[in-house]
């Protein structure tokens, strides 16, 4: 039984508190949370940071947080720009791109 959390539109420092609440609620409610970020149009570092933090949180609570689909273009671009994909760990690669780094 998993929960699906769909994120859309703009995910920036302005909406980060909202995202944090949503993630906390979802992780409280179920042991397996899937994030759908395919429709995110705009994002900044705070989004990546919140998701990283949530992953950490999930591991500590023995829960699973995953992406419903591999990260879309804009997210991948930001991850590249912010240096998340240099020397990427297998773990991160699994999380963001389901194991396959798009070229």
């Amino acid at each position: 039984m998993h929960q699906l959390l769909e994120l859309q539109g703009s995910q920036t420092v302005r909406t980060a508190p909202e995202l944090q609440r949503a993630l906390l609620a979802a992780l409280d409610a179920g042991a397996d949370v899937a994030l759908d970020i395919s429709d995110i149009a705009e994002l900044d570092l705070s989004f990546v940071q919140t998701v990283c933090s949530a992953r950490h949180h999930a591991v500590l609570g023995g829960k699973t947080l995953r992406l419903a689909r591999p990260a879309p273009g804009p997210v991948a671009a930001l991850l590249t720009r912010a240096g998340f994909l240099t020397d990427i760990t297998p773990d991160d690669l699994d999380f963001w791109f389901h194991g396959v780094l798009a070229q």
Binding site: V13, A16, P17, Q20, L27, Q49, T50, A54, H56, H57
Partner: peptide
């Protein structure tokens, strides 16, 4: 961790 994070 998420509970302690100040997202901004």
């Amino acid at each position: 961790p998420l509970t302690d994070l100040v997202p901004v």
